Amino acid sequence: MPRPIVWRGAGLGNEIFPWAKAYIASRELGFRLVRPAWGLNRRNYRQEFGTSRLDFLQHAALRLAMPVVTVTDELVESTGETDYGAAMRVLDAEHGWSRRHSIILLHQGMAGGHLAIERARGYLRNTLLGRLPERGCPDDHGPDRGQLRVAVHIRLGDFSQDSTGPQPGVFNTRLPLSWYSSVLAALRERHADSLHIDLVSDDPVQATRMLSEWRMCDARSRSILEDLSIMATADLLICSVSTFSMLAAFLSDAPYLWYRPHLHEHGGFLSIWGYKPQQMTGGTGDSLRKEQRIGGASLPTRGVAVDADGELPSWLTDFLTMKAALNRRSGDLVRCGVVPHHSPVPIID
């Protein structure tokens, strides 16, 4: 039976692309999915997923036993399809992979970004989330007061430092600490009574030292899946320019903030990937034309561009005020709460 297989060794934000692509291919072509060989990953993800250190031997045995076809970015892009499932159908019609008795499809690359793997979002949510820490934070606000949970991702590690932060098309660069401070100060000014901050970082000790004023809990070591679950379930995400932040935003339904100077300008709109010429004939270009058609410049957006001064749009602060009110348990019927006899008129002050 055909077996899609994944073989990677990068960070989780990168790992999910070939994994998700293999999942989509398995659904489209009727192949069996073989999960990543986490034993090869230098970040010890095997401990996160509970797999053996030698799980890569199964992959190696399969590669010796059956012919391997590597599905490259170039091969996928040649189909003209952004959706990975649609691309697989085109390639399968051309190469007849699903009609072969035995074959391994090796998936790689990040072509199409998260838009290409949209069909795998539910699978990734079911697989990666649900790891929230069982112990709460002693500094949490009382639940009856309502609580606005904000997850702040500070990517440190081997990311380079630049006083201006990453510019359009530049990655693997830290965001200025002043940007985080400005954004958090703006949130505190409006939501101080309900604000709870979770600092998420690959170096939590250094991150809490850098933003000690915002440390709501003692610095503690968490697994990467706990960090991902915290971010994906927050009411607001403050992202770094990293694939891990992108993954959290992809799996979340909440609004998220992005560093404005990193975004590419075109046609009165901003994007992460618009600096790539092929994107303007693909996903980014399609989105730009749609937003122009529906008058998107005057509508709220999930991704919010925030400049170095940390100023937040008024619609977002109004939304967060409403979200904090909805979070209070005393107004939640299934938590022994009560609701007014008549529907209240929302007041945003």
Rank of each mutant, 00 (worst) to 15 (best):
P255F: 08
A25F: 04
A185T: 14
R328E: 10
V200E: 10
M231E: 15
L333Q: 07
A248C: 10
R289S: 00
E81S: 07
T127M: 12
G274Y: 01
C336W: 08
G310N: 11
H264W: 14
D92G: 11
F159D: 09
S163T: 09
V345R: 15
R131Q: 13
L184T: 07
D83E: 12
R63D: 01
A219I: 07
R302E: 06
A93D: 15
L91Q: 01
G165V: 03
L124T: 11
M88V: 13
L263D: 06
R260S: 13
V152P: 10
M1C: 10
N172Q: 09
C239F: 03
H59P: 02
S271N: 00
H107L: 15
Q206L: 13
R302N: 12
N126V: 00
V76L: 09
S330W: 11
D307R: 06
G296C: 02
L40F: 05
H262Q: 12
E48D: 15
L326Y: 07
A232R: 05
Q147Y: 03
L225F: 14
E94C: 02
G136D: 13
W38Y: 15
D318L: 02
A120M: 06
M110H: 12
W273C: 06
L105N: 05
A249E: 08
T281C: 00
Q58T: 11
L333P: 07
D307S: 14
D318P: 04
R293A: 12
D144C: 02
Q47W: 14
L251H: 04
M88T: 13
A324N: 10
T301H: 15
L247D: 11
I230Y: 04
A219V: 06
T233Y: 03
Y180G: 09
P176A: 04
G267V: 03
V170P: 02
E74P: 03
D73A: 14
A120N: 14
R329P: 00
E118T: 06
M110P: 07
R155Y: 04
L288W: 00
L64E: 13
T301K: 10
H264I: 03
L247C: 09
I103Y: 04
T301V: 02
V71L: 10
D92P: 11
E189H: 11
H264Q: 12
K290A: 00
